[in-house]
Simulated assay, not measured.
Amino acid sequence: MYTPRHFSISDQQELLQFIQDNAFGQLISSHNDRPEATHLPFLLSQDGERLLCHLARQNPQLDSIDEQQVLIIFNGPHAYISPRWYHSPGVPTWNYQSVHVYGIARTFSDEDRLISVVNQLSEKYEAGAENPWQPEYSAKMLRAIVGVEVEIKEIQGQYKLSQNRPAKDRQRVMQALQAEGEIAIAEAIEQWSKS
């Protein structure tokens, strides 16, 4: 990913936390000499060295993904930034947070591993519900999916949050975004303005 110096995020713990907080990503691989992508939730292993997910067995991406280098993209909040919000001259742009993970994909069909992945995903996204749904899967349902484990080789992060603008401009950008209801990206700009 092209990352100008002032937008680059290299702190490993920050990048892993971003993945945890924004775990719905795009799994991109090569299939029949063209890029193929699937949008799905991921689990980050406790040691931060692997990502886990599952695909429908009928997904053609499974035909060639095993042992292939893949790209997974995780996005956070984003919004259009108008130059009318600046005190000093500028151009239209977009603020965003994005993390790219490169790694080697390996598929698995072991029922116990699949149950573990599906249960962990359910627990994560059912957490906080008044009456959380309890996973219960038949062998037939599990045969309809294939697990994918991605061994992480490289993580790249970019938070483009007006860091290249003067403090007065960043303040005006945050105020304009809040007025437009873009609270998450405004909060991200505020957080990283203090860094």
Rank of each mutant, 00 (worst) to 15 (best):
A129V: 08
Q120A: 11
L55A: 13
S193G: 07
N164C: 02
V117C: 06
T93H: 10
A79I: 14
W192P: 00
R170G: 01
Q175N: 09
Q68I: 01
Y125Q: 02
I65A: 03
Q58V: 09
A186D: 01
E130P: 01
R84P: 00
E180M: 13
L43E: 03
I28C: 08
P41C: 05
G48L: 10
S29C: 12
Q12Y: 08
S29M: 02
V117K: 03
A56M: 07
T93W: 14
S8G: 00
G147M: 04
L51V: 07
I104W: 00
E130C: 06
E36Q: 10
E136Q: 14
E180A: 15
A129R: 15
G157M: 12
G103Q: 06
Y80H: 15
V91F: 13
S88P: 00
G25H: 03
D11L: 10
N32P: 01
S195C: 08
H6W: 13
Q163W: 07
N164T: 06
K160N: 05
R172M: 11
T38I: 08
V148L: 06
T3Q: 07
P83E: 05
Y102F: 10
E149A: 15
N22P: 09
C53V: 05
Q12I: 15
Y86K: 01
D47I: 10
I9A: 04
A179D: 02
L16W: 09
R106D: 06
L142E: 04
L55V: 06
G48D: 00
L51R: 05
I183N: 09
G76Y: 06
V101Q: 03
